[in-house]
Design a protein around this nucleic acid. Structure first.
Lengths: 173, 173, 173, 173
DNA sequence: TTTT
DNA sequence: TTTT
């Protein structure tokens, strides 16, 4: 459908170190979750309340994943611009499960580090497009041992050495 | 946590008419899903591919829900600005299930109708704050027959007659 | 026009301390500018280039301005969600001048502090609505000595003691 | 500065047909303005008020400009994701002037057509990066007859025939 | 200058 | 599981 927009903007901190996985074709994913929270004053009781929300993030592509591998860790504060995606998988008993993630892959998706402290700086933006994950319907809610989307050049095509933003190269520190 | 942001921006069309439910306290929810899609050209095959994503939307509060009741239907194109929320519920077998939704409730959440044709117009923005849903852990993934969050005035407090944007009133048609 | 959106999202640092002004009616504005920058690699030369952009921010309303007065200063890093507005004014020679600003006033506008260091914390969101600035066409590009928009209660109505987010009160520190 | 974000999201209609210009190097710009408006109820008088804001848009790059040339015209409704930029120029009397525009150039900038009627569809996203405008300080507030930023390949590199989103090609109508 |  |  032309004329649609799917955008998620989050600022929050990682609860744990990211997990990095490599596909058969050399592509990479980084998975982690970040917390956002909001607070408000309850109308009835007048008490302050707070609620924390955890978001699952999946980042594809060597470049951005490389940045994450090196600079993002438990506690890091990130600005994330991705898209909402739900994927279906089966648990070991064959039950259908659905996981909704914020995916950084392809145009219009970004990640910026917001820590002012030591390991800060960095950031990167996905290259011009690249193969989409298509369908990764695997067990246990993970991305299994599948090839990611297309063939062996997909990830590197996305933000390889000819990319406009040579992520591995452009990180200013 | 101060310093976090949780924002989802979607433009898409409804797959079906919205479902409206009323809570014991008089509050209302509208539930519906909207589709976004993206297309790209596959690197290997050179073929065009397209993928549609469905997003579950939950809108709380009389005012906005009133707008939806009257003007939003299957096929309507909407601009939505909400927040990501995952809630846990149990199916009839007692299994834990998780549903991630785009929630419109409280400040910074909006809905705008983008159809230029007939039933168009409208739009509205959530009032200044209001009670948060807190926890609505019910069966079957629905919002059941619970009170929503706080007490009996929560929904109407959110955007009631004293609200700055009297939604029921300000819709310019 | 129903069906329009005007939203600016910025993350950047203040170049100088904010300037706070009070209107005749007791309303307040905070003015400051924040820098964003982007870097890229030049296609021809292969050199890295960087460009910094300065954005003029105007925040209206006692609550948010109070937060700024107390916690925001030169160097602070902010997340800002506002709207684009251009106002016309005359310089001392009577020439028409135009200034485009990112305005935080009314629904859907927010400010969050992103500094992890000392003077951090805070944040706030504009209340449910409130009078709009309407027209403040004054000399020297400033907001002069005019009343802001409506009458004497406009600013306080916007996020006064009855507001859902009593900003002066809810800042968690 | 790493860690900054500069993003503008607009939905509105064009007041006039776009103006397309070609640079010496073959690059192209499309300039047009779109209106957004907001309405609110005045606190004092209780009257409805409305205010329209006009935004200057500048789109660089053959691909997107080609889409605009063919499908965007007076009255079209667009979703735009760009960045805020202010440029300085001199009028014929040598006076400094500043123009703030929403620029679509490089990663993270997009345009989607939202008209449901006849000439609808389309959309496109800027490629991976590309030369930045750098400085185009010319008279009359226009982009004059300068080369745009880099050399003759900048625009086509940005979203040329090898681009992931072959804009000229992918428009589904 | 648009649109509703 | 983070952060304040």
């Amino acid at each position: 459908m032309a004329g649609s927009v799917n955008k998620v903007i989050l600022i929050g901190n990682l609860g744990k170190d990211p997990e990095i996985r490599t596909f058969g074709n050399g592509g990479k994913v980084a998975n982690f979750s970040i917390a956002t929270s909001e607070s408000w004053r309850d109308k009835q009781s007048g008490e302050k309340r707070e609620k924390t929300e955890w978001h699952n993030i999946a980042v594809f592509g060597e470049g951005l994943v490389g940045v994450i591998e090196r600079y993002v860790k438990k506690g890091s504060k990130l600005y994330i611009e991705g898209k909402l995606q739900t994927r279906k998988w089966q648990d070991r008993d064959g039950n259908d499960k659905y996981t909704t993630e914020v995916v950084l892959q392809g145009p219009g998706t970004t990640l910026t580090m917001l820590d002012s402290a030591g390991g800060q700086g960095g950031g990167g933006r996905m290259g011009g497009g690249g193969s989409q994950g298509g369908g990764y319907n695997q067990d246990r809610g993970g991305y299994g041992n599948m090839d990611q989307g297309g063939g062996s050049r997909s990830a590197s095509t996305m933000e390889g050495p000819k990319g406009d933003f040579d992520l591995d190269d452009d990180i200013p520190f």
